[in-house]
């Protein structure tokens, strides 16, 4: 460290006057105080904007789900247009097995 200090010292190669640095510090302090003073106003505008956006989003979601709920599903369309026997006849064996929820157990013989 001493070696380096001897070589170049601790000065910077750009010489700024003390006045320049002092003025910059003062400007920075003023700007920080001003920015903080205007922050609540900006905060209010931002909050209103966010509230408006979220209200619109909730409304949109509500409308979309209403439309969706009232739309007839494909299954319902088939149900409404065909009789049960027609539906069952149109299904393959595997499909029939998959909707067969009841397992009919053998009835034990009565002794």
């Amino acid at each position: 460290m001493k070696e380096l200090e001897k070589f170049a010292g601790k000065n910077m190669p750009y010489k700024e006057s003390e006045d320049y640095v002092a003025q910059l510090i003062e400007r920075s302090a003023n700007r920080a105080i001003k920015t903080a003073a205007s922050a609540p106003k900006r905060g209010k505008v931002l909050r209103w904007t966010l509230e408006a956006i979220s209200a619109a989003a909730v409304l949109l979601i509500g409308v979309l789900s209403f439309v969706d709920l009232n739309r007839e599903s494909d299954f319902e369309k088939i149900q409404n247009s065909m009789t049960l026997s027609e539906v069952l006849n149109s299904m393959s064996e595997e499909e029939l097995m998959s909707v067969n929820c009841y397992v009919i157990e053998d009835i034990p013989e009565y002794e």
Binding site: I25, A29, A36
Partner: peptide, 10 residues
């Protein structure tokens, strides 16, 4: 420097 000052104050 200005950004730093704003952050410090806030």
């Amino acid at each position: 420097m200005q950004e730093m000052s704003i952050k410090v104050y806030s």
